[in-house]
Nucleic acid binder design. Structure first.
Lengths: 209, 209
DNA sequence: TGCGTAACTAACTAGTTAGTTACTTATGGA
DNA sequence: TCCATAAGTAACTAACTAGTTAGTTACGCA
């Protein structure tokens, strides 16, 4: 008995590219580079595997595209802008970063995967993308110290490291904590944790460095 | 020309088991479960691959053993003991955890890998191992609040999540920051970051929650 | 209308990987 | 001393996986 013939995909190169990239994003986020299967990406996208090699060269090339498509987000500086209130701006920056990670779990996982597996080259990519944000923190911190909103001991590098650690570490823990909710009584929302993190990082009102 | 015959391994089951476990620990820490190669583990241990299957059943079994051999470390409570000074005890607990992660990079990476890849079952394992520590934090926090060393808002669950996030997130960032040292002027030692983290989590002298 | 080419497809291949088989050798107790 | 058995080995296999080949279909343009 002859199978129903699979309907042929309409000829739309751009759409195919995008579909592949989306599927790759979720598969790489789920399994990491080594664990991801090219066949699974193709199947999830509903696109012939050959197209991956036509558009992205190879698995590595596709992975690079996935990463850089997510990392080109220097919106940070725009989000904060210049409001004249450095401490508030810092807090908004922290909240923006946390929201970025918690709303887009795939992105958080990609970051984590890449920090674990990425070679020196890919790590430079990550850092390049983080560079502008660090400069912003440095500038804001300096102003906040000048206005007395933060103590004189404020160190932008440590602050940035702590923000990244808290954000990344929290989203890494998230599934485990979710699974634990049933047993342990301890429960709090993501929002509550962000509030807590902001208080830790910037103090309750703004008198600590 | 006949090759020099490889010297046969002395018959010592226990030593072979341990050697395999050590090799597996470093290979799994480097590449994660999916990325690790059974052949590489065997070669690094200098043990025939077959022995892995004899002693640990399969790759998964070996991985489980690696994890549980590291996770059976409920020394936390002993380290802190009952000193009567809850805030100091909490600080010692935090420093112990950070030292654990930073001194044993393989352990930190294993934890991170497992949080990314581990299914529900393995995550329960992780949480079980973290359970006693959480109870300890809860008890200490309650006492610290009672003595006024910490503010009344202290939440042990959030505190624990923040400690884990800071520790895990920091060690994840570590290689990337190391690579960045050359370019950015920002540099600080691990010790300095731990001090910073303790100040964040517990306040400079002990008046915040 | 028909033709050149870009988009797409199915089936294949070469190489890798977890896991196995069938065997040899050392060790300790009867 | 001899043999039962645990420890160890080399070579193999079945399944899988990234990447390729050779060919088919649809679209734009002359």
């Amino acid at each position: 008995m002859p199978r129903t013939r699979r309907q042929r995909r309409p000829r739309d190169a751009e759409a195919t590219r995008r579909t592949l990239l989306d599927a790759a994003t979720s598969v790489f986020a789920e399994h990491g580079f080594a664990g991801a299967r090219v066949d699974e990406i193709a199947e999830r996208a509903g696109v012939n595997k050959r197209m991956i090699y036509a558009y992205y060269g190879d698995k590595e090339g596709l992975y690079r595209e996935v990463l850089s498509s997510r990392l080109s987000a220097p919106e940070a500086s725009q989000i904060v802008a210049d409001t004249g209130e450095p401490r508030r701006a810092l807090e908004r920056l922290v909240r923006w970063y946390f929201r970025l990670l918690s709303e887009d779990g795939a992105f958080a996982r990609l970051l984590a995967w890449d920090m674990l597996t990425g070679g020196a080259r890919r790590r430079e990519m990550l850092l390049d993308s983080a560079g502008p944000a660090l400069e912003l923190v440095t500038a804001l911190g300096r102003r906040a110290v000048a206005t007395g909103e933060l103590g004189p001991g404020f160190d932008p590098a440590k602050f940035r490291a702590a923000v990244v650690a808290l954000g990344l570490g929290y989203s890494l823990q998230h599934p485990a904590m979710e699974a634990a909710r049933a047993r342990t009584g301890a429960r709090f929302t993501d929002e509550e944790f962000v509030d807590y993190a902001c208080r830790l990082l910037l103090g309750p009102g703004g008198e600590r460095g």
